[in-house]
Write a protein that binds this DNA or RNA. Structure first.
Lengths: 217, 217
DNA sequence: GCTCACACGCTTGCATCCAAGCTTAGATGC
DNA sequence: GCATCTAAGCTTGGATGCAAGCGTGTGAGC
């Protein structure tokens, strides 16, 4: 009996696969793309019909999106797409900074894993070549998740990943113009250098500065 | 239309309420109490029958327990209670320390909320008067969650809460003897003082020391 | 005795069906 | 005209039914 758990955090590109995954991706994409704007009322039945499946897998997707903070479930009434507020943005950036700073600090103690440099540079390239803001946001998310994952704490990695979907709601704002994206990619390059050097204090300082720039941008 | 979202993180004592909540609590209690030991194979049908409900709410509970790390779901095969390993213990303590240190640092910047002292002292008392190790573990969890919640970052609070259920699997080991519990309660008292003083460096140092003691205890 | 194929029993995944709660619109009484 | 009561149409929550996947055991063939 060789048990092998299925990937709970499915890759973004794993075709249709399970219906619940498909429902999740459809709703998330709708929120990210803006066709389901903040405040919109979604119902299980509506999504189920539009995707061509029953309510059961849609329900599962709604629950997940709820824990990820993208939907608010109202019993017997429906689900509302949460509104990105300034306060929530601050909280999100604060939390993600906490994870990344800790990750670099852990790496300083445990060492940087082999192959990390290639991985991070790959994400940086993808970012630099991103065609639009949404694609940029996706590779940005992948880059940051790779940094946290490199610290080797699977619990931290899983929790951090849960904050990823929220970003898709915000990021096509700051990275709207190609020159903005270029500037951010360059800043990310500097951050990556500090990660690879496992320079925790340097990374923390630079990250704060980077976040401040994003917030005011 | 005055929308008011229902509490997604339900209180432990909210009667039976929704069946899904009941199923969640039953399975969690079974894992915490040891009647569903690590490695045990649970099936939706089995739990549903024993609790007297259909598989639907049980399935929901399983999904939640899976994201909380207590169950591993194997498609078409069943769910297995995860085994608490030394590596996972380290990861868990590391992550929780990250949250708590950050929370105190944030409080140092934003101020300590009113009423926190009374709240924390209440949890300390509950801990000191805990009849058994499981009850001690519950109030301990509540204490730590209160500390993180006091920092005022709702995203961090929600993520931190997700790591709570895992603890119930471990904690009736270190706190088995009443004198151990007394010593831990006293250490927690010192930590609470540093929280209330918003002394981030002091808290961080003391917490590391406390965790080291727990790990080697 | 050993290997391989097939069939059976188990599981989940999803579809469908039913009950109960919330909202609202319309009828009714004043 | 206005407040109140009622009933209908939404919604979700849960129960039930069905199909497909996985593991195991059994039996045929060698």
């Amino acid at each position: 009996m060789s048990f092998e758990p299925h990937a709970s955090v499915a890759s973004v590109l794993d075709a249709d696969g399970p219906a619940a995954e498909k429902a999740y991706r459809v709703v998330l994409d709708a929120i990210a793309a803006g066709s389901a704007p903040a405040g919109a009322l979604l119902t299980e039945g509506l999504v189920a019909e539009s995707v061509g499946m029953s309510r059961t897998p849609v329900r599962e997707a709604f629950l997940r999106l709820s824990t990820e903070g993208l939907l608010e479930l109202y019993p017997k009434r429906g689900a509302i797409v949460t509104a990105p507020s300034a306060a929530e943005t601050d909280e999100l950036l604060e939390v993600r900074a906490m994870f990344e700073k800790s990750a670099v600090a852990w790496m300083a103690a445990r060492g940087v894993p082999d192959g990390l440099e290639a991985t991070l540079r790959g994400h940086l390239d993808a970012q630099a070549n991103a065609a639009d803001a949404l694609e940029f946001a996706r590779s940005d998310r992948a880059l940051h998740e790779a940094i946290v994952a490199a610290a080797g704490n699977s619990i931290a990695t899983a929790l951090f990943a849960q904050t990823g979907p929220r970003l898709l709601r915000y990021w096509h704002r700051p990275a709207r113009q190609p020159e903005d994206r270029a500037r951010m990619a360059s800043e990310h390059g500097e951050l990556v250098e500090l990660v690879l050097a496992a320079d925790a204090p340097g990374f923390a300082a630079k990250l704060d500065q980077h976040i401040e720039g994003v917030r005011n941008g």
